[in-house]
């Protein structure tokens, strides 16, 4: 399965980094990205990708097709 991607919406809050079971979250100069060779989308570890489950920002993680894993309105409860 294709790896997930972190977008510029990322606020560098670090929530995803310690819980990634594959150590796929790479941080350089406060810019977070997912190593595409290490990301398994948590298959075999959890039902859903852990970074997606803890990320507080809508649209900060997208799939290979560019779809937001947490679309607008789904996390804040605010109208999108």
């Amino acid at each position: 399965m294709l790896a997930l991607v972190i977008t510029v919406e990322c606020i560098a809050c670090w929530a995803c980094e310690p819980i990634c079971p594959n150590g796929a979250i790479r941080v350089k100069n406060e810019i977070f990205r997912i190593d595409k060779n290490s990301c398994t989308r948590c298959e075999g570890h959890a039902e859903l990708p852990q970074c997606v489950e803890i990320c507080p920002v809508e649209g900060a993680i997208i799939d290979a097709e560019g779809r937001a894993m947490n679309p607008p309105g789904t996390l804040t409860g605010l109208p999108a």
Binding site: C13, W14, A15, E17, P18, V57, L75
Partner: peptide
Amino acid sequence: APACNMQCRYCNRK
């Protein structure tokens, strides 16, 4: 401690 494990409705860490 940057990370958080929940979202309170009075907080915006953005």
